[in-house]
């Protein structure tokens, strides 16, 4: 079985996003970028499936501008077999991304797609569910455990109340939650090896899809900051403040 792992290049999660002064968006010029952490979980799961013999080939795919290649090379260094870069300088919404991924999934004849549950920039948490809908496949989001046996997968999902277990028919689209696994570190020889792995480029315009944005961002603001607090010197002072000043206990 071939698995497609969808990955996204995002602002490094340790870096605080800065809103541009003109309110047009978040300033990403010269910012440190990485693979979205949940996408690493998704890829790691695919790698473990290949090691277990469930999966024969892993293709990483991403949609974006020229530098998206760096993120795909990271995926190849982690162990993916090859990469597909859908090239566009436009910033696509999840619905458009899902349409692109649907076409790639069908062209590749993949039997499983794994994505991260959420990209930490847009925080939309949509692409997996939308891709699953467009393909008409089963959907298993927020996965913390996946077992594929025969034509079915048993998936444990992280839900608000605890853990839910569902069974889905293959082919399926899944999204990785943080406890699914711990992504491996990339070693230098892997980085070298990744440079020689194949990376196909597909121009978005050549796909013949309607990827127009449905939402217009009117402005991006910085949230109001919190007023500065104080440092208390003891537990007794803290309790006194909470009782008499903040009046919350």
């Amino acid at each position: 079985m071939k698995v497609l792992v969808c990955v996204k290049r995002v602002l490094d999660p340790q870096v605080k996003a800065r809103v541009k002064a003109d309110g047009s968006g978040v300033d990403l010029a010269n910012a440190k970028m990485t693979m979205n952490p949940f996408c690493e979980n998704a890829l790691e799961e695919a790698l473990r499936m290949r090691e277990a013999g469930t999966v024969s080939e892993i293709v990483v795919v991403s949609v974006g501008g020229g530098k998206t290649e760096e993120t795909l090379r990271h995926g190849l260094a982690m162990g993916a077999d090859r990469a597909i870069h859908v090239v566009t300088e436009d910033s696509l919404e999840p619905l458009a991304i899902a349409k692109v991924l649907k076409q790639v999934t069908e062209q590749e004849d993949a039997g499983l797609v794994i994505c991260g549950k959420q990209a930490i920039d847009g925080d939309s948490n949509q692409t997996t569910q939308m891709l699953s809908a467009l393909l008409g496949w089963s959907q298993a989001t927020f996965a913390s455990e996946v077992k594929i046996e025969g034509g079915e997968a048993t998936v444990t999902r992280e839900v608000d109340a605890g853990l839910e277990t569902i069974q889905v028919k293959m082919p399926a689209v899944m999204s990785a939650d943080l406890r699914l696994n711990e992504p491996r570190y990339v070693k230098l020889p892997d980085v070298m090896k990744a440079k020689r792995k194949p990376m196909d480029k597909i121009e978005l315009d050549s796909m013949g899809l309607d990827t127009a944005n449905r939402l217009t961002t009117l402005k991006v603001d910085e949230p109001e900051g919190r007023a500065a607090g104080i440092i208390v010197n003891s537990v007794s002072e803290l309790v006194e403040k909470l009782r008499n000043e903040a009046k919350v206990i």
């Binding site: 996003a17 809103v19 449905r214 217009t216 009117l218 402005k219 991006v220 910085e222 949230p223």
Partner: peptide
Amino acid sequence: RPIYAGNALATVQSSD
């Protein structure tokens, strides 16, 4: 809607 872990607030208009 909040984006970037709530470090930015986007005002978006839908055409759907």
